[in-house]
């Protein structure tokens, strides 16, 4: 599970096709590099810096994203 401050490389996104397509359109796909800026348990959201782009994603959707932690 990713924590605040983690940097990682996305290995794969194991969601059903429609969800994976939307993630891909938003840049969440194999090879993308991300930094976790905040994990908010209250809001159930993960705040990401994805190659300079800031975005938030529901925590429930992050469990099927396989990553390789960097550093």
């Amino acid at each position: 599970m990713l924590k605040t401050g983690d940097e990682a490389l996305i290995l794969s996104v194991d969601h059903p096709d429609d969800i994976r397509d939307q993630m891909m359109a938003n840049g969440i796909c194999t090879g993308a590099r991300l930094r976790v800026e905040e994990v908010s348990k209250l809001h159930k959201m993960m705040y990401l810096n994805l190659e300079g782009r800031l975005m938030a994603i529901r925590l429930s959707r992050t469990t099927d994203i396989q990553v390789n932690k960097l550093g």
Binding site: I19, Q22, A56, R61
Partner: peptide, 9 residues
């Protein structure tokens, strides 16, 4: 539905 939110600068 998937939910991703762009957080603009």
């Amino acid at each position: 539905a998937i939910w991703i939110l762009d957080l603009p600068l």
